[in-house]
Amino acid sequence: MMEKTVLINCSPKQKLSVSGFLMKCAGVLIRGKKEYFHLRTPADYPAILQALKGAGKVVFVTPLYVDSIPSHMLPFMQEMEELCRGNGLRLKVYVIANNGFIEGKQNEPLMQVMENFCARSGLTWCGGIGIGGGVMLNVERIMITVMFGLMLLNVLLSAVQGGDVLDAVLSFGKSLLGLVILACGIIAFGIRLAVHINRGTDAGKKYTRIMLPSFVFIAFADIFFIIVSVLQGGIFRGWLSRFQPDAGCSIITENGK
């Protein structure tokens, strides 16, 4: 009988997180019983810790925040350490990390932190993948959904007007292929990781990225932030200004005050 796998989305975002998407994708490839969780607040701890008691494997899917794990994960990890040490749990731990920069290798400090956590908790570190440019996966899934809708519309119109239905399908197929090529490294390493998770073996640490030259990715990222900043108004509110802390900034204790 296969051991249960617990998958934890560690993004603090409520919706549309890349980590949540990656967790669902990984879940499709992992066999056996699975449980999915979203770790955001201490209220989420009891259910996750309870699920871990009956599991053999756990997959943390997390964004990179300032070269490490997001801060809200730390108190959970401390509670998990206590639980595992107290109950002699020997879970196998896998990590899928993603970051907004193009280089997957920038996830290395986060991977080491998770490995150190395993050593402290008596867990088996089994590695994982670090993904660069993970935010593009969000763009891709939105594009695929829109393109699929357009294809259905084209097929319908072609059928009504007596046109070539196949043209619309082929056009969608070509666009889809382009998006798959951009994500081919992530798909390949994702499948490889899933094979290791299913076998319960050490996957090692592997780093991959969206298959775009970095200068093209940077151009896309800059355009994305310009558009969002125009829509949200930040561009008109001192977008790049060197703001000073207000006089009453309560977090500072200064000399002479």
Binding site: P12, Q232, R237, F243
Partner: peptide, 28 residues
């Protein structure tokens, strides 16, 4: 903790959306 909204970049630069003591931490 940070909610990952990026509004300190895109909506109200150099100010966090949450108005607690870390509202202007990046300026410090």
């Amino acid at each position: 903790p940070c909610q990952g909204c990026f509004k300190c970049w895109t909506k109200h630069p150099a100010s966090c959306a949450m108005k607690d003591v870390l509202h202007q931490a990046c300026r410090v």
